[in-house]
Amino acid sequence: MSDIVPEIDLRANFGPARDQGARPTCLAFAASDAHAALLGPWRPLSCEFAFYHAQRRAGRPPSSGAILPAMLQALQHDGQPLESEWPYLGGLPADPGGYGPPTVKQVFRRRGETGSQDYDEIVRRLRTGETPVVLLTISDPFYMPDAAGVVDGVGGDDPVRRHAVVAVGYGRIGAEDAILVRNSWGTDWGLHGHAWLPRSYLAPRITCVAVLTEVADVPAPNIAA
Protein backbone atom coordinates (compact mmCIF):
# COMPACT_ATOMS: atom_id res chain seq x y z
CA MET A 1 0.00 0.00 0.00
CA SER A 2 1.35 3.41 -0.96
CA ASP A 3 1.87 6.13 1.61
CA ILE A 4 -1.14 8.26 2.51
CA VAL A 5 -0.68 11.96 1.81
CA PRO A 6 -3.39 13.94 3.65
CA GLU A 7 -4.51 17.27 2.24
CA ILE A 8 -7.40 17.96 4.64
CA ASP A 9 -7.76 16.48 8.13
CA LEU A 10 -10.57 17.76 10.37
CA ARG A 11 -10.33 15.10 13.08
CA ALA A 12 -9.24 17.74 15.58
CA ASN A 13 -12.80 19.13 15.54
CA PHE A 14 -14.07 15.91 17.09
CA GLY A 15 -13.49 13.90 20.23
CA PRO A 16 -12.78 10.16 20.40
CA ALA A 17 -14.80 7.99 18.04
CA ARG A 18 -17.88 6.55 19.71
CA ASP A 19 -19.41 3.08 19.57
CA GLN A 20 -23.01 2.38 18.57
CA GLY A 21 -22.78 -1.25 19.61
CA ALA A 22 -25.28 -3.67 18.08
CA ARG A 23 -28.09 -1.13 17.64
CA PRO A 24 -29.01 0.35 14.19
CA THR A 25 -28.08 3.89 15.19
CA CYS A 26 -25.24 4.77 12.82
CA LEU A 27 -27.10 7.74 11.31
CA ALA A 28 -27.86 9.16 14.76
CA PHE A 29 -24.16 8.95 15.65
CA ALA A 30 -22.97 10.46 12.36
CA ALA A 31 -25.46 13.33 12.51
CA SER A 32 -24.84 13.95 16.22
CA ASP A 33 -21.08 14.07 15.81
CA ALA A 34 -21.26 16.34 12.77
CA HIS A 35 -23.54 18.59 14.82
CA ALA A 36 -21.31 18.59 17.90
CA ALA A 37 -18.24 19.44 15.81
CA LEU A 38 -19.95 22.64 14.67
CA LEU A 39 -20.55 23.80 18.24
CA GLY A 40 -16.96 23.51 19.48
CA PRO A 41 -15.16 22.91 21.72
CA TRP A 42 -16.06 19.22 21.54
CA ARG A 43 -18.95 18.18 23.74
CA PRO A 44 -20.77 15.07 22.51
CA LEU A 45 -24.49 15.43 21.92
CA SER A 46 -27.15 12.87 22.79
CA CYS A 47 -27.47 10.33 19.98
CA GLU A 48 -30.30 8.71 21.90
CA PHE A 49 -32.34 11.92 21.86
CA ALA A 50 -31.84 12.43 18.12
CA PHE A 51 -32.62 8.80 17.34
CA TYR A 52 -35.76 8.77 19.49
CA HIS A 53 -37.20 11.86 17.82
CA ALA A 54 -36.24 10.78 14.31
CA GLN A 55 -38.03 7.46 14.81
CA ARG A 56 -41.04 9.17 16.29
CA ARG A 57 -41.30 11.56 13.38
CA ALA A 58 -40.96 8.75 10.84
CA GLY A 59 -43.34 6.42 12.69
CA ARG A 60 -40.61 3.78 12.89
CA PRO A 61 -39.86 1.52 15.88
CA PRO A 62 -36.63 2.02 17.83
CA SER A 63 -35.52 -1.43 16.73
CA SER A 64 -35.07 -0.25 13.12
CA GLY A 65 -32.65 2.20 11.60
CA ALA A 66 -33.41 5.89 11.11
CA ILE A 67 -34.04 7.56 7.76
CA LEU A 68 -32.31 10.77 6.74
CA PRO A 69 -35.32 13.09 6.23
CA ALA A 70 -36.63 12.29 9.72
CA MET A 71 -33.18 12.74 11.26
CA LEU A 72 -32.78 16.17 9.70
CA GLN A 73 -36.26 17.15 10.90
CA ALA A 74 -35.41 15.97 14.41
CA LEU A 75 -32.19 18.00 14.53
CA GLN A 76 -33.99 21.11 13.30
CA HIS A 77 -37.17 20.94 15.37
CA ASP A 78 -36.39 18.76 18.41
CA GLY A 79 -32.67 19.44 18.70
CA GLN A 80 -30.26 17.60 20.95
CA PRO A 81 -29.08 18.03 24.53
CA LEU A 82 -25.60 17.11 25.65
CA GLU A 83 -24.86 13.39 25.83
CA SER A 84 -24.77 13.58 29.62
CA GLU A 85 -28.48 14.53 29.72
CA TRP A 86 -29.58 11.31 28.00
CA PRO A 87 -26.63 8.92 27.66
CA TYR A 88 -26.68 6.33 24.90
CA LEU A 89 -28.38 3.06 25.83
CA GLY A 90 -26.54 -0.18 25.19
CA GLY A 91 -29.92 -1.81 24.60
CA LEU A 92 -33.58 -0.90 24.52
CA PRO A 93 -35.76 -1.35 27.63
CA ALA A 94 -37.69 -4.61 27.80
CA ASP A 95 -40.86 -2.55 28.16
CA PRO A 96 -41.27 -0.35 25.03
CA GLY A 97 -43.39 2.02 27.07
CA GLY A 98 -40.35 2.80 29.17
CA TYR A 99 -38.41 4.23 26.23
CA GLY A 100 -38.56 8.00 26.14
CA PRO A 101 -36.43 11.07 26.79
CA PRO A 102 -35.96 12.62 30.20
CA THR A 103 -36.57 16.29 30.83
CA VAL A 104 -33.52 18.15 29.55
CA LYS A 105 -32.13 21.58 30.34
CA GLN A 106 -31.09 22.74 26.89
CA VAL A 107 -31.24 21.55 23.31
CA PHE A 108 -29.16 22.62 20.34
CA ARG A 109 -30.97 22.78 17.00
CA ARG A 110 -29.40 22.74 13.56
CA ARG A 111 -30.75 22.86 10.03
CA GLY A 112 -29.48 20.48 7.41
CA GLU A 113 -29.69 19.87 3.70
CA THR A 114 -29.18 16.90 1.41
CA GLY A 115 -26.79 17.07 -1.49
CA SER A 116 -25.99 14.86 -4.43
CA GLN A 117 -24.59 11.35 -4.47
CA ASP A 118 -21.40 12.70 -5.98
CA TYR A 119 -17.98 11.92 -4.50
CA ASP A 120 -16.67 15.30 -5.66
CA GLU A 121 -19.44 17.03 -3.71
CA ILE A 122 -17.95 15.57 -0.52
CA VAL A 123 -14.49 16.84 -1.48
CA ARG A 124 -15.87 20.29 -2.25
CA ARG A 125 -17.58 20.43 1.14
CA LEU A 126 -14.44 19.31 2.95
CA ARG A 127 -12.45 22.06 1.25
CA THR A 128 -14.79 24.63 2.82
CA GLY A 129 -14.31 23.12 6.29
CA GLU A 130 -17.61 21.24 6.36
CA THR A 131 -17.87 17.63 7.52
CA PRO A 132 -20.64 15.93 5.50
CA VAL A 133 -22.64 12.96 6.69
CA VAL A 134 -22.24 10.25 4.07
CA LEU A 135 -24.73 7.42 3.61
CA LEU A 136 -23.34 4.42 1.75
CA THR A 137 -23.60 0.73 1.20
CA ILE A 138 -20.76 -1.32 2.62
CA SER A 139 -18.98 -4.52 1.67
CA ASP A 140 -16.91 -7.06 3.56
CA PRO A 141 -13.59 -5.11 3.35
CA PHE A 142 -15.20 -2.18 5.17
CA TYR A 143 -15.22 -4.18 8.39
CA MET A 144 -11.44 -4.59 8.45
CA PRO A 145 -9.36 -1.62 7.22
CA ASP A 146 -5.73 -2.57 6.63
CA ALA A 147 -2.81 -1.61 8.88
CA ALA A 148 -2.61 1.82 7.23
CA GLY A 149 -6.29 2.43 7.89
CA VAL A 150 -7.37 1.93 4.28
CA VAL A 151 -10.46 0.03 3.19
CA ASP A 152 -9.10 -1.84 0.22
CA GLY A 153 -10.45 -4.69 -1.87
CA VAL A 154 -13.68 -5.86 -3.40
CA GLY A 155 -16.23 -8.54 -2.70
CA GLY A 156 -19.09 -9.15 -0.34
CA ASP A 157 -21.19 -6.28 -1.63
CA ASP A 158 -24.74 -6.25 -0.36
CA PRO A 159 -27.05 -3.29 -1.12
CA VAL A 160 -29.01 -4.08 2.04
CA ARG A 161 -26.01 -3.26 4.23
CA ARG A 162 -26.36 0.49 4.61
CA HIS A 163 -24.30 2.65 6.89
CA ALA A 164 -23.62 6.30 7.78
CA VAL A 165 -20.28 7.95 8.53
CA VAL A 166 -18.86 11.47 8.73
CA ALA A 167 -16.35 12.65 6.13
CA VAL A 168 -13.50 14.34 8.00
CA GLY A 169 -10.59 14.43 5.58
CA TYR A 170 -9.23 14.14 2.07
CA GLY A 171 -5.93 13.00 0.62
CA ARG A 172 -4.14 10.68 -1.76
CA ILE A 173 -3.06 7.08 -1.59
CA GLY A 174 -0.51 6.71 -4.34
CA ALA A 175 -2.20 7.75 -7.59
CA GLU A 176 -5.73 7.63 -6.17
CA ASP A 177 -7.53 10.14 -4.00
CA ALA A 178 -9.43 9.08 -0.89
CA ILE A 179 -11.75 10.41 1.80
CA LEU A 180 -11.12 9.95 5.51
CA VAL A 181 -14.26 8.96 7.41
CA ARG A 182 -15.19 8.84 11.07
CA ASN A 183 -17.13 5.71 12.01
CA SER A 184 -19.23 4.81 15.06
CA TRP A 185 -17.74 1.38 15.80
CA GLY A 186 -15.38 2.49 18.55
CA THR A 187 -11.69 3.26 18.52
CA ASP A 188 -10.59 -0.28 17.67
CA TRP A 189 -11.84 0.10 14.07
CA GLY A 190 -9.26 1.42 11.61
CA LEU A 191 -7.21 4.37 12.83
CA HIS A 192 -8.78 4.96 16.23
CA GLY A 193 -12.24 4.87 14.65
CA HIS A 194 -11.33 6.38 11.27
CA ALA A 195 -10.38 4.96 7.87
CA TRP A 196 -9.49 6.05 4.35
CA LEU A 197 -11.98 5.13 1.62
CA PRO A 198 -10.41 5.35 -1.86
CA ARG A 199 -12.47 6.92 -4.62
CA SER A 200 -12.80 3.55 -6.37
CA TYR A 201 -14.37 2.09 -3.21
CA LEU A 202 -16.55 4.97 -2.04
CA ALA A 203 -17.84 6.65 -5.21
CA PRO A 204 -20.04 3.79 -6.45
CA ARG A 205 -21.43 3.13 -2.98
CA ILE A 206 -22.66 6.61 -1.97
CA THR A 207 -26.43 6.75 -1.55
CA CYS A 208 -26.75 10.28 -0.15
CA VAL A 209 -24.77 13.15 1.32
CA ALA A 210 -26.10 15.57 3.94
CA VAL A 211 -24.59 18.71 5.42
CA LEU A 212 -25.64 20.50 8.59
CA THR A 213 -25.91 24.24 8.10
CA GLU A 214 -27.07 27.13 10.27
CA VAL A 215 -28.39 27.08 13.82
CA ALA A 216 -32.15 26.63 13.95
CA ASP A 217 -34.05 28.50 16.62
CA VAL A 218 -37.54 27.18 15.99
CA PRO A 219 -40.17 25.63 18.26
CA ALA A 220 -40.92 21.96 17.83
CA PRO A 221 -44.32 21.51 16.12
CA ASN A 222 -46.84 19.22 17.73
CA ILE A 223 -46.70 15.66 16.43
CA ALA A 224 -48.63 12.63 17.51
CA ALA A 225 -47.02 10.48 20.15
Rank of each mutant, 00 (worst) to 15 (best):
R57A: 14
R57Y: 11
R57E: 11
G59D: 03
R60E: 02
P61D: 03
P61G: 03
S63R: 11
S64P: 02
S64V: 15
A66N: 04
I67E: 08
P69D: 08
P69N: 08
P69K: 07
A70G: 12
A70F: 08
L72F: 09
L72V: 09
A74K: 05
Q76Y: 03
Q76G: 03
H77C: 09
H77D: 13
D78C: 10
D78Q: 08
G79E: 01
G79D: 02
Q80D: 04
P81T: 08
L82M: 08
L82K: 09
E83F: 11
E83G: 10
W86M: 06
P87T: 09
G90S: 13
G91E: 14
G91Y: 11
G91A: 14
A94C: 05
A94N: 07
A94R: 08
D95A: 12
D95V: 09
P96L: 03
G97C: 06
G97Q: 10
G100N: 04
P101A: 09
P101H: 05
T103D: 15
T103W: 14
V104L: 10
K105T: 15
K105R: 15
V107K: 02
V107C: 02
F108I: 05
F108S: 03
F108Q: 04
F108D: 01
R110P: 00
R111Y: 03
R111V: 00
G112S: 01
G112T: 01
G112F: 01
G112K: 01
T114V: 14
T114F: 05
G115F: 07
S116K: 08
Q117H: 09
Q117P: 06
D118A: 14
D118L: 12
Y119L: 05
Y119H: 00
D120F: 04
D120S: 06
E121K: 07
E121P: 02
E121S: 13
I122R: 00
V123N: 00
R124C: 05
